[in-house]
Amino acid sequence: MSFRLSYLADPGNPWFSWQYVRDNSDTILAAVREHASLTGRAVVIAVLIALPLSVLAYWFRPLAGPILAVSGVVYTIPSLALFAFIAPYLGTGATTVLVGLVLYALLLIVRNVVAGLNQVPPEVREAAEGMGYGRWRRLFRIDLPLALPGIVTGVRLATVSTVALVTVGVLVGHGGLGQLIFAGFQNNLYKAEIMTAALLCVALAVVLDLLLILVARLVTPWSPRRAR
């Protein structure tokens, strides 16, 4: 009898099992809920911080460089290291994960919103000024609506990458579906558990992305519909 990793060939360890899904539906649902809620909160907070930052970078050009540079450096820091910096101060709670996720999502959103705002044609800007629009009214009536495609791209990228990133939260015990993946790994490579969680992770990213595309269509009814 070979002892060497015999469980790998074991038919009792299938890639996918409805039995597992049925028996553990509560755990799985709880993990999905935590995953989705962490993603949602992180993206919403990141948008709320990123929009004012981007407008600052747009209005005051000298600020654009530093804002993008700082968020770029934060983005280069590996997620594990970022969580390691935050955890000793905030403890091993969901807050630690949330702060890390927000910091990462920030860069993606800021970069795309700034690009979107800079794409507003100068003629349009001048026309708005000529019509007597002030800075604020121009921002809300002209600049931001025209930058919506950039904003949407940023939010979509941030959402999809946040969904993947939540799993690293395993480090502090709040990794959503990552908890299941890691538990499956520790549980003698329980393939069904790893696979179910990984597939749900990808599915969550796809569903959220499609939702955002739908929202984008609703808020930009003037943009041309492409068959893609």
């Binding site: 790998l8 799993t167 993946i181 890691f182 696979m195 992770c201």
Partner: peptide, 20 residues
């Protein structure tokens, strides 16, 4: 690859390779 969680790939591949 953007949507695939790193952790998932890191845990799945040892199984695929059967090399522990």
């Amino acid at each position: 690859t953007l949507a695939i969680p790193t952790l998932a790939l890191l845990t799945i591949l040892p199984v695929v390779f059967a090399s522990g």
